[in-house]
Structure formats: C-alpha cells, structure tokens
C-alpha cells in the first residue's frame, strides 16, 4: 500500500495550524463536493480530501500521523509499524463504517478500527445504500437481476475491509427512476444477535437508444415525411410493448407531440408515451427527386419567411 501525504492533498505545509487546515479543506470542499460539482472525478477527489481532513483535523490522529510522516514520502510503499499508535487514543470519526470503507487502504490500516460504531452489546446493523442501473425494459416486464456490491466488513479488531456481496433481486414491473427497493436485513449485520440493517437500492435506468424517461412518462422522436405531416396519415410507431399504429393529423408540424395514453411505464397510475414529431425531408439525390422539388417550388406559393417581413 502507498503512503499518503495528507498535507499535500490539502495543499498545506506540515507546520499548518488547525485553522489553516480547516480553511484549506473548506476551500477544496467548495470546489470538489459531489453535491456541488457534478464533474466526473470530483467525487473521488473529494473522498481523498475528506480522508486527509479526517486525519489532520483531529489532534490525536494528526500527531500519530506526523510521527509516521517523518519517515515516508507520498506514494512510497508503506506498512504500518507494529504498535505504531501506542500512546494515542483516537476518538471515533465523523464517518459511518459504510462511508469510511471508501477511504484508502492506507487510512483503514491506520485508523480503520476507530470509525464511528456503537460500542458492544446488541446493536442493529447499519442501513446501507447503493445505486443500481437497469435497462428500461425491466420496468415493463419485471426482471431478476444479479447485483454485486462492495460492502464494508468489520473484522474482530474492528478494522474495515471490503468484500463482494452478490444478491439476486426481483425488479418489479412498473418501477420508476429514483424509486428505492428496500431489502430488509440485507444491510450491515447486527451484533449480539440483533437484526441486520436494511439495504436500499436506488433505481436508475440505462440511457435508451429510443426512449427518454421523465418520471413515469416516456418520449420518442417519431420521424414523418412532409406529406404525412401535411395530409395526415396512419403510421407505425414502436413502443416498449410492441409496434402500434398512430394517426398523424393533417397539418402536423415538427415538435408537435402526440400522447399515447397509458403506454409509458406501467406504474400505478401508468405513464404516457409522447411521440415528438419530426418532419424529415426526402433527399434530393436523384434527378426525379430534384424534379419533384422544382415542381413544388413552382406550384406552391410558399414563403416560410413571411413573418420575418422578407
């Protein structure tokens, strides 16, 4: 495992005061906090910053870390010396076991056994949260999905490590983006015979090549020809449950929406499917096609710029 230079991560000198450390952390938090900064990479960077601050903001942890720090450089191969923290007493941190498990191995090898946790006795396990990304089709037909989560484990010494937890979960028909599937007892195990916590799976849909999701409604861009738009027509349109025929009213324009009631996600109540019309011009790539365009130009007195006064 690599030695981490927490001072470098926060961009402060080793001699920085507690106040300087706090200021440096707050400035970085404003830039990289994942609730503020949606850029990819911000979250990983913020975890590193949180971890550094967790150590350097706590006088005991900082003193113990400083003792080590004199002997190692950032990135150097590191193994904690035996009894490295002798003489120090650490207070529990600000993070739950679940959150602290995201910290580096370096952190967990040093401070892992001092994360916040209830002390002994019969204690219910912590609830846990995870996001799952499923195909939109699951909402229409229901499915069983196998998911693998990395979950923190506390060993006998209270040290945190990650292990893989594989679950088979039923995805109910009608599930919607942002809903939670709550699995009782699948969170952290309890201690002293107490029940485990619950696992909350937050559902997200994979982006779909055809449909856009908005709550329980879907929308689909439906290309139509100029004559279908002008004269009206009955055309075929795909839906997640099969092809349907829809009537395009005469005089339709690009951007107009046709609502297919109840053809959205089959929740209770079911959502709708919106067809957003897009008039597509046939290419003028043959002599015959060009001739037809020229004929329209001659025979239709049409000025689309009339309202612009030109």
């Amino acid at each position: 495992m690599e030695f981490k230079d927490y001072y470098k991560i926060l961009g402060v000198e080793r001699t920085a005061t507690a106040d300087e450390i706090k200021k440096a952390y707050r400035k970085l938090a404003r830039t990289y906090h994942p609730d503020v900064n949606k850029e990819p990479g911000a979250e990983a960077r913020f975890k590193e910053i949180s971890e550094a601050y967790e150590v350097l903001s706590d006088p005991q942890k900082r003193a113990a870390y400083d003792q080590l720090g004199r002997r190692w450089q950032a990135g150097e191969e590191f193994t904690p010396p035996p009894d490295w923290a002798a003489g120090f007493e650490f207070s529990p941190g600000r993070f739950s076991t679940e959150e602290a498990a995201d910290f580096s191995d370096f952190f967990s090898s040093l401070f892992g056994n001092f994360t916040r946790r209830a002390s002994g006795g019969r204690v219910r396990g912590e609830d846990r949260h995870a996001k799952i990304v499923i195909p939109l089709e699951d909402a229409f037909h229901g499915a069983t999905r196998t998911i693998t989560l990395r979950v923190p484990d506390l060993d006998a010494q209270g040290r945190v490590s990650l292990r893989e937890h594989t679950l088979k979960v039923r995805i109910p028909k009608g599930i919607r983006e942002g809903q939670l599937i709550r699995l009782a007892g699948q969170g952290a195990p309890g201690s002293g015979g107490a029940p485990g916590g619950d696992l909350y799976l937050e559902v997200h849909f994979d982006s779909h090549s055809l449909y856009r999701v908005d709550g329980h409604d879907l929308s689909l861009t439906l290309p139509i020809t100029p004559w279908e738009a002008a004269l009206g027509a009955t055309v075929k349109a795909p839906t997640p449950t099969g092809v349907v025929e829809v009537k395009i009213p005469p005089g339709s324009r690009s951007g107009q929406k046709l609502r297919l009631k109840g053809r959205g996600i089959p929740s209770d109540p079911p959502g709708d499917l919106y067809l957003v019309l897009e008039v597509v011009l046939p290419p003028a790539d043959t002599e015959r096609a060009r001739q037809l365009y020229r004929m329209m130009a001659q025979e239709l007195a049409f000025n689309p710029r009339q309202e612009l006064g030109v």
């Binding site: 219910r124 609830d127 949260h129 069983t144 679950l167 088979k168 979960v169 039923r170 109910p172 599930i175 919607r176 942002g178 809903q179 939670l180 599937i181 709550r182 699995l183 009782a184 699948q186 916590g197 619950d198 909350y200 799976l201």
Partner: peptide
C-alpha cells in the same frame, strides 16, 4: 434466493425511526 424488496417511491411509507436509521 431471489430477494423481493418493498418499494419506497413517491408515497410516504417510511416511519420516522426507519427514516432516521436510513
């Protein structure tokens, strides 16, 4: 075993104790 969960969606279902724990 296939796990079947309860859905927490747009309707208010979690009690204050459950909510605090989560």
């Amino acid at each position: 075993d296939v796990l079947t969960g309860s859905i927490v969606g747009y309707e208010d279902v979690l009690t204050v104790e459950e909510f605090a724990r989560a």
